[in-house]
Design a protein around this nucleic acid. Structure first.
Length: 608
DNA sequence: AAAAAAT
């Protein structure tokens, strides 16, 4: 039987009579037997796994491991050299480090990230959060792996020795069983292997790279980090292309690391740097950042990458599209980060153009390639409609849609609708027009201040302004739960972008609707769109088929080399890219053309 | 061409 360190803390706290009461709302003590932990409140009585044995959880604000009495041995595991990889030997017991002692100054109460104590309107949807996941949709997802000695996937979280503290947070998140990307990626990462993967954000990708990092840091033998003047030394770095995405990863990572003692800090541009510096100074294990701000911090020598054990690059192709390659190379190769093979690296990308392949071969060592199909292959979950709408009719047409939606909605409440437009100016003007016409809308684009962007996102998520007009800043990666409808008011020029946009709905196994306004300005998209819809078993209007057959072949398609079909490819198999001894051809033959997994030639990026 | 990202 496993006795984890966290268990012993929980036991010792229950023995010492700690009452598990009090959220930050100052509610008075509840009798212990009646105590319902915040994350178990407001739930439907059935369908949940048996509640964890919870006689008296530690008070939410009190960091486990911060000098608690009889907290058990801080480290009982085998010792490793400083730069040792967190090898996975399975069945280890009692080796969980609390990270205590690292951030002595941070004795303030850790804010409960699961808060039913934040009291704002985001609660409109709480209680449904994650509980409506259609797990059947996850069953038949095609998954492909290749590489040396791929660790076998797991079927339950219980099979993975992540530690009790993390397990408790998994329960608090109401994750019942791992999603496909988690089933495969977590054992790979825990096995200390580098990973190149593609999968949707909504399918649990963030957890897939956060769990191994958090658990690895907790296992880490306590190593004194250098104490530079004002320099901090994170152990893990997560890079993502947009500020919102970084925030989102940070929020999730905070939930996963609650009461583990692992500190997560986010740094991104557009926000005052001083506050971020203060956060950093209070201690950081995992740093989530956008490239620009991180480079700034590195140049100021406020952050050192010397102690980095884990590096995760999210939406790598997106970062390259946005011209971040120089910054990323600077961060990974030209600062003080340990080289590949010493640190552990995870690279997530939707497509595999040459630049990504080069990046993979430069940043990863003997990695495992993992491709996870789209949840429900997008087919079952997103209903795609395309309508011919003249430029001049778009606004009134949108209005019709919104009216119909409002009437069909429950209690006349507008369900969340995300409207994509091409330009920042167009976004502002459409938002204004919607508001004038009685539809509360807000907008998100790169000309708005970060504060405005964050406010807009919050206001949208909470349902206060159930219509969000967005440019492509919101197209990829953002996981906004409960988006019922995505409207492509202006279609993008690239079918990949279309796929990403409609992927903002139908997430986490829920169904969604995507409507596109098509007109003569979108001719180049006719064929790829018709092909895509057909392959997704959607109804293709006859007029679109006609345009498609007329359209000059190849127009508007993504012709990036290296991209193609299900999950892209592990290019190491091509033989064309072999370089040095890290590469090997043709392990694990077969696997392409997994049934139901593809969008056909030239159409990629079903992944986030 | 537009969008994004450090000040």
């Amino acid at each position: 039987m496993r006795t984890s360190w966290a268990d012993s803390v929980a036991n010792s706290q229950s023995e010492s009579g700690t009452t598990g009461s009090s959220n930050n709302n100052g509610s008075s003590h509840l009798p212990r037997s009646r105590y319902v932990p915040p994350h178990l409140r407001n739930r439907p009585p059935s369908s949940d796994p048996p509640a964890p044995s919870y006689s008296a959880p530690p008070p939410p604000g009190d960091r486990v491991g911060y000098g608690g009495p009889s907290a058990g041995p801080r480290w009982a595991g085998p010792s490793r050299p400083d730069y040792g990889r967190p090898g996975y030997s399975g069945g280890r017991t009692g080796s969980w480090n609390s990270r205590s002692g690292s951030w002595d100054r941070g004795r303030e109460r850790e804010v409960n990230p699961f808060g039913d104590d934040d009291g704002d309107a985001e609660d409109a949807f709480s209680g449904q959060e994650n509980s409506g996941i259609n797990f059947d949709a996850y069953e038949d997802i095609p998954v492909e792996t290749s590489g040396d000695n791929v660790p076998p996937p797991v079927n339950t979280f219980a099979e993975i020795d992540l530690g009790e503290a993390l397990n408790q947070n998994i329960r608090r998140c109401k994750y019942v069983k791992p999603t496909p990307v988690q089933r495969h990626a977590i054992p790979i990462s825990l096995g200390g292997r580098d990973l190149m993967a593609c999968a949707q954000t909504g399918s649990g990708k963030t957890a897939a790279f956060c769990f191994p990092i958090i658990s690895g840091i907790m296992r880490e033998q306590y190593v004194q980090r250098p104490r530079g003047a004002r320099t901090v030394y994170p152990l893990a770095l997560i890079l993502s292309p947009t500020r919102e995405l970084s925030c989102q990863i940070h929020e999730e990572a905070r939930k996963f690391s609650y009461q583990t003692g692992v500190k997560v800090v986010v740094a991104y541009g557009g926000a005052p740097i001083n506050q971020q510096l203060r956060e950093l100074e209070r201690g950081v294990d995992i740093l989530v950042a956008t490239p620009g701000r991180l480079v700034d911090l590195l140049e100021r020598a406020r952050v050192s990458l010397q102690m980095i054990r884990y590096l995760a690059l999210d939406e790598a192709d997106r970062m390259l599209d946005m011209g971040f390659e120089p910054q990323i190379r600077k961060i990974v190769e030209q600062m003080d980060m340990p080289p590949r093979g010493v640190r552990q690296t995870m690279l997530f990308s939707a497509t595999f153009p040459k630049e990504i392949q080069r990046m993979a071969s430069d940043f990863l060592a003997n990695y495992i390639f993992l491709a996870v199909g789209r949840v429900g292959s997008s087919t079952d979950l997103i209903v795609q409609r395309v309508e011919f709408v003249l430029e001049s009719d778009k606004r009134s047409h949108l209005m019709d849609l919104l009216h119909a939606q409002r009437e069909n909605g429950i209690h006349g409440k507008q369900s969340l609708t995300l409207v994509f437009v091409e330009t920042k100016k167009g976004a502002d003007s459409l938002e204004n027009w919607l508001c004038i016409n009685g539809f509360p809308a807000t907008t998100i684009h790169g000309d708005r201040t970060q504060q405005e962007r964050e406010y807009a996102l919050r206001s949208f998520k909470s349902g206060n302004t159930p219509i969000l007009v967005a440019t492509d800043v919101a197209a990829r990666g953002l996981d906004i739960p409960h988006v019922a409808h995505v409207v492509n008011f202006d279609l993008p020029n690239d079918i990949d972008d279309y796929v990403h946009r409609i992927g903002r709905t139908g997430r986490a196994g829920k169904t969604g609707l995507a409507t596109a306004f098509f007109n003569e300005n979108n001719m180049s998209l006719a064929r790829p769109l018709a092909d895509l819809m057909q392959e997704a078993n959607q109804e293709v209007p006859v007029w679109l088929t006609r345009y498609a057959s007329r359209a000059y072949s190849g127009g508007g398609r993504n012709r990036r080399s290296g991209a193609g079909r299900f999950g892209g490819r592990d290019f190491r198999r091509d033989g064309s890219f072999n370089r040095g001894t890290d590469f090997y051809g043709g392990a694990n033959s077969g696997g392409y053309g997994v049934p139901g997994g593809g969008y056909g030639p030239g159409v990629t990026s079903a992944w986030d």
